[in-house]
């Protein structure tokens, strides 16, 4: 079943002077099946973050359509965008984006409270906290946590609404290798229980956990690798080869 369908997506930024436009995305097409785990790779400035922001409805594409569950996100009104975001999407950011004024518990509750879906919130919280190994941190504040712990809390916040798709923007970008590996194994675990995940990364190691890797260059999907039967090591080598070929190993 196709969950997400991106067609002829184009995003141009207009500069300060009228005839100075920058094309971030030229023509992006791809589909995501439910239950997939996709990594999007590209050089900085390739438009991968723009692509994610468009899917996340944080940015509006110039032309093209993004269909999630047969609903065109580019047609949503400003008013419904916010509620769509919190009901259907989950976010994990590079810099965690937790609220310093709230405890871990309240940070995770946040989307539920915003969506006014606070019924049996504590069962949901405790199930997630156990899976993420943050049961003991619930009463702490973000500044008391390590990077890896913060990212786990962020994952909890993203998943508590049971989103259709989990979007990650360089989720391991700010973490050391040990914590990065733990976060990736969590991603994989949730994917195995059928959570669709789409993440943007420039780390080949992170991408090697995904089932499919899309490469973006010059604002287009240039290449893709399916995992098939490769193990992590083989996948990593394949990705590294591809990046060397595509980007001259400059990543």
């Amino acid at each position: 079943m196709t969950l997400l369908k991106v067609e002829h997506l184009k995003k141009e930024y207009r500069g300060k002077f009228k005839n100075n436009t920058v094309t971030a995305l030229a023509d992006v097409n791809f589909e995501v099946e439910a239950g997939e785990f996709i990594a999007i790779m590209g050089e900085s400035g390739s438009g991968k973050s723009t692509l994610l922001n468009c899917i996340a409805t944080l940015d509006k594409p110039t032309t093209g359509t993004i269909m999630l569950n047969d609903e065109d996100l580019t047609n949503l009104s400003d008013k419904t965008l916010a509620s769509y975001r919190r009901d259907h999407l989950g976010f994990v950011f590079q810099d965690f984006n937790l609220l310093d004024t709230m405890s871990v518990r309240d940070n995770i509750y946040l989307p539920l409270v915003l969506a006014k879906r606070t019924k049996d919130k504590s069962e949901k919280l405790h199930r997630l906290a156990e899976q993420l190994g943050i049961q003991d941190l619930l009463n702490k504040y973000p500044y008391e946590l390590s990077g890896g712990q913060m990212q786990r809390v962020a994952i909890g916040r993203a998943l508590i609404t049971n989103p259709d798709i989990l979007l990650g923007d360089e989720p391991t970008g700010a973490l050391d290798s040990k914590n990065a590996a733990e976060i990736l194994s969590l991603f994989r675990k949730y994917n195995e229980s059928n959570q669709t995940i789409l993440m943007v990364t420039h780390s080949a190691l992170a991408a090697s956990c995904a089932k499919r890797v899309l490469f973006i260059k010059d604002g287009m999907v240039f290449h893709q690798i399916y995992r098939g039967n490769r193990n992590d090591q083989e996948m990593l080598i394949t990705i590294n080869d591809a990046t060397t070929n595509l980007f001259g190993g400059a990543m």
Binding site: A56, D78, K79, L81, R86, F91, N97, L98, L99, D100
Partner: peptide, 15 residues
């Protein structure tokens, strides 16, 4: 920054 996070997570303009 804080309100940016809140809006990314799904807080609407009127909220």
């Amino acid at each position: 920054k804080q309100f940016d996070i809140l809006q990314k997570v799904g807080m609407s303009h009127s909220e």
